[in-house]
Amino acid sequence: MKLMKENIETQIMLYADNELSAGEIRDLMAYLEKYPEYKALLSEYQYSVLQPEEMIFEDKEKLFQHHGRKAKALPLKMTIGIAAAIAIILAVTGYYQRAGNDNLLDNAQKNMVVRASDSFSRKLETVVNPDKSHKKEDPAGTSTAARSTAVSQNITAVSRSSVRQRSDVALIKPVTFLPTVDITADPQPVMILVEPVGPAIMEQQRQTGVRPQARQPGDLLAAQIEAVYEQSDRLKGVHSLVTELDERKSRAVDAWQQIKNTNVILKIGSKEIVIK
């Protein structure tokens, strides 16, 4: 290429970019010797070339791979994203679990009856309040939880009368998680405590009149029914439920396993009952 005024700048840029051949460089130098006014332009373009600058990537360890293993290094953004997602899930789970606990304790303090399973409560209610039970069958717009709460209140009403005769009874439901509960804040704590004793032991109780200490997992439902049966003439029909409910003892076993390691402190008047 013949060098001239029109293409000298391009050639100088190519020179600065190290894109010229040896012959082209010789031609350019000869031209600059002939026209030294372009030497300044050459200097300016040479100054525009970035000088070497060392930078160290400090996370090389994350990039190394071992033979036969696939890459494990995750991009930083992805790592942060995964961590954030886990944090959010944990936070939300913790929130709802805490809210669930709060609701549970709140209901326990309001009703003073921690409910057994919803279906069990309904059946129990049928026996306890047969004239009201049909109203609870299909309450308009009420959810299962609301219906269950209403049932619990009925049970409480029955329990209140029974407590006059047995001040140390309370009904404990099998719950999945139940922290230590202090219900002294309630002015009239009314609960029915039904100890989970087996039928044989209950028979022994009838005969001796002494509350047995032995507890047998799985008998909670039977004991509940028995206790309620003893408290009201209106519960005569409860025997017909025993057989059916007996089949569900296995559930009670599981529930009992879950609550038996928790402490529940009940205070009835000045009396304090600790259930471990």
Binding site: E53, E54, M55, F57, K60, H67, R69
Partner: peptide
């Protein structure tokens, strides 16, 4: 490319690649 060759690439190129990206 073997794992050792890949690791050598990390040693040789990571700094320059980081400089380019940064």
């Amino acid at each position: 490319m073997t794992a050792s060759e890949y690791n050598q690439c990390v040693n040789d190129i990571a700094d320059g690649l980081y400089r380019f990206a940064y």
